[in-house]
Design a protein around this nucleic acid. Structure first.
Length: 463
RNA sequence: GGCGCGUUCAUCUAGCGGCUAGGAUACCGCCCUCUCAAGGCGGGUACACGGGUUCGAUUCCCGUACGCGCUACCA
């Protein structure tokens, strides 16, 4: 989901010759994860999403990491209090919990009861002097209708009485998302905020904040993207399978394919084309072509698209991605050999991993054999013929798919049987499975000595 | 519960008052064929429901149902 959001921001910025800004919103100290930023940066780079301003590239409006900007937020919080737009709140989280429970029990929406909203200066001072921890809350005006225009959804309205007196500054001195976001968007001269739909109901709070700070005129435009959904239509989450971007990488998906696929989840340039280069996506991207309803992240179409991208590449291009996978599995083969395997398998795989997982027989002689094919093809008669063929193949001076085919077809003709009667058992004996690339090509790539030894092994061990 | 957003094939979607409702994935069948894959051809499946507005609604309006999101000192 985050990848898709980042992608749309990127596409929108590039389409409009704008500036794509990366800001690290790390204001929750309880959820800090070691290396998360580096991981994010790596992921974005892999996906081909670049930024013009941010923690690594810098920019006019830095720092781009919120935890380095706490002073700024505190100053604005103070300003808001001074202007009576916000107020300190000394309620403990225990009290807040009780209030919420009580309201829920009586059928009320669980909101803050605004207990500290009207504290006098003296009361505030006394509590501060006593060292009581406090937060800063937005003084939400009562009885107003807040309307804003969303670039995806049109006008959206909320009644201010349904909006909580949002916490802006936490008791640890860090801002919440709401304060930090508005302050930074303003200071960094953000023109467009493109984010997930889960933020839609927070937006009136943000509008109120812009007003309270006197910035409403320069408020950015909002675009709330439809959510990406699990197959059960709940918000896409890691709890239901591997959906972190790194997981797709390790599962052998090409970044271009993932990006292409994600781009088309919620956006469509409105013709029949499915495969889009990033340049085409940038050229076609318009916010008003973005859908309003959530999209199920379906794996089948991604698989298809990935196979399309794989097929569009040459063996040489695929080599550098496949080689490490082969190495990882301990398959010590020459580059030349691996290149040939890739050539034979390209149109049969859906992911990069399939090159090595799906066709292990290229790297290791089979010791187990597909039962279905065995039952069907491994007859006494077939074994007899394979023994003959083994002799013929061993005697062959040439070893190309053409020469192999000639030998096999000639033998079939001499026995007055169809070539299939030889091909199927032969495939089973050398690959252990009943399907795969054309047999003659397969035998050529495997090489003469490997083929003859595998046939011998099968003849001896396969009953 | 409250508030908000949404609703075209199983899935991703096209459609922006008049179409036999189009494409893609998946699925099924046929062709090709040594198998698989690819490719070619063909097939089935959708406008949530009820009211309006209109000569005419998938399209505009209202309601209902359903789904999802938010409702934290998380983002």
């Amino acid at each position: 989901g985050s990848l898709r959001t980042a992608l749309y921001n990127y596409l929108f910025a590039r389409h409009n010759n704008g500036v794509n800004v990366l800001r690290i919103e790390d204001t929750d100290r309880t959820r800090l994860v070691e290396g998360a930023v580096e991981n994010l940066l790596r992921t974005m780079e892999w996906a081909g999403i670049s930024f013009d301003e941010g923690p690594t590239q810098g920019g006019e409006y830095g720092p781009y990491v919120q935890s380095e900007r706490t002073e700024i937020y505190r100053n604005y919080a103070d300003e808001l209090i001074a202007n009576n737009k916000a107020y300190p709140c000394f309620c403990t989280s225990e009290r807040l919990d009780e209030v919420r429970k009580a309201m829920q029990a009586s059928g009320q929406p669980p909101m803050y009861d605004r207990h500290c909203r009207n504290l006098t200066h003296e009361e505030v001072q006394t509590k501060k002097d006593a060292g009581m921890p406090h937060v800063v809350r937005l003084r939400v005006p009562l009885g107003e209708t807040i309307t804003f225009n969303d670039l995806v959804r049109g006008d959206v309205s909320f009644e201010s009485k349904t909006i909580d007196d949002q916490v802006l500054l936490k008791s640890d001195g860090f801002p919440t998302y709401h304060l930090a976001n508005i302050v930074d968007d303003h200071l960094m001269k953000i023109t467009h905020v493109i984010r997930g739909e889960e933020w839609l109901t927070s937006t009136p709070k943000h509008v109120l904040l812009y007003r309270a700070l006197g910035w409403e005129a320069e408020m950015p435009k909002f675009a709330h993207l439809p959510l990406l959904l699990n197959p059960d239509r709940s918000k896409l989450s890691k709890r239901q399978g591997d959906v972190a971007v790194e997981d797709f990488k390790t599962q052998g998906y090409l970044p271009d394919a993932l990006v292409n696929f994600c781009a088309l989840l919620g956006f469509n340039p409105s013709d029949a084309q499915e495969i889009y280069s990033i340049e085409e996506l940038i050229a076609a991207f318009e916010l008003d072509k973005v859908n309003k309803s959530g999209a199920v992240f379906g794996r089948e179409k991604l698989d298809w698209m990935n196979s399309e991208y794989i097929r569009s590449k040459t063996p040489e291009e695929l080599f550098k991605s496949v080689k490490p996978l082969a190495d990882n599995r301990g398959y010590a083969v020459s580059d030349e050999y691996l290149l040939k395997v890739i050539g034979l398998m390209t149109e049969r795989v859906r992911t990069l991993n399939d090159f090595v997982d799906f066709a292990g027989y290229f790297f290791k002689a089979p010791t187990e054999f597909d039962e279905k094919s065995r039952a069907k093809n491994w007859t006494e008669e077939a074994k007899q013929r394979l023994a003959d063929l083994l002799v013929l193949l061993s005697a062959s001076a040439e070893w190309t798919h053409d020469s192999i085919e000639q030998i096999i077809r000639a033998y079939a003709e001499s026995k007055d049987i169809s070539a299939g009667k030889l091909i199927h058992p032969l495939r089973l004996s050398v690959s252990g499975v009943g399907s795969g690339p054309g047999l003659f090509e397969l035998l050529e790539v495997l090489g003469k000595s490997e083929v003859t030894s595998r046939i011998s092994y099968a003849l001896e061990h396969l009953k």
